[in-house]
């Protein structure tokens, strides 16, 4: 499968990655190569094979409904570029 420039620009935008126009061609080539590589898997007939979800025979681990975490606001906020009165502060996002 080969990707065109417009698709690469759209993917970059959805991922919020800034890509200059002059790099789009190059990236389209690289991404297409990756897709082509992965598409080789399509040659195997998996008609009756259920999707593998884990390499180990295990089930989803569950937790009891108990409050065991939280209550460390300062640690949570410590990486925020801007905070005030116990909140994260970000540029205004409202319609």
């Amino acid at each position: 499968m080969s990707l065109d420039k417009a698709t690469v620009a759209k993917i970059a935008h959805l991922a919020r990655i800034k890509v200059p126009d002059d790099e789009l061609d190059h990236l389209a080539g690289e991404l297409s190569q990756i897709l082509t590589f992965v598409e080789q898997l399509g040659e195997v007939d998996t008609q009756d094979v259920p999707p593998m979800t884990s390499v180990a025979a295990q089930t989803l681990r569950r937790r009891k409904d108990e409050v065991t975490d939280g209550g460390y606001r300062d640690a949570v906020l410590s990486n925020g570029p801007e905070t005030a009165e116990g909140f994260y502060v970000v540029p205004k996002v409202v319609e």
Binding site: F87, V90, P91, K92
Partner: peptide, 10 residues
């Protein structure tokens, strides 16, 4: 809460 900012509570 602020004229130019949005406050986030998680």
């Amino acid at each position: 809460q602020h004229p130019a900012k949005t406050y986030i509570d998680l």
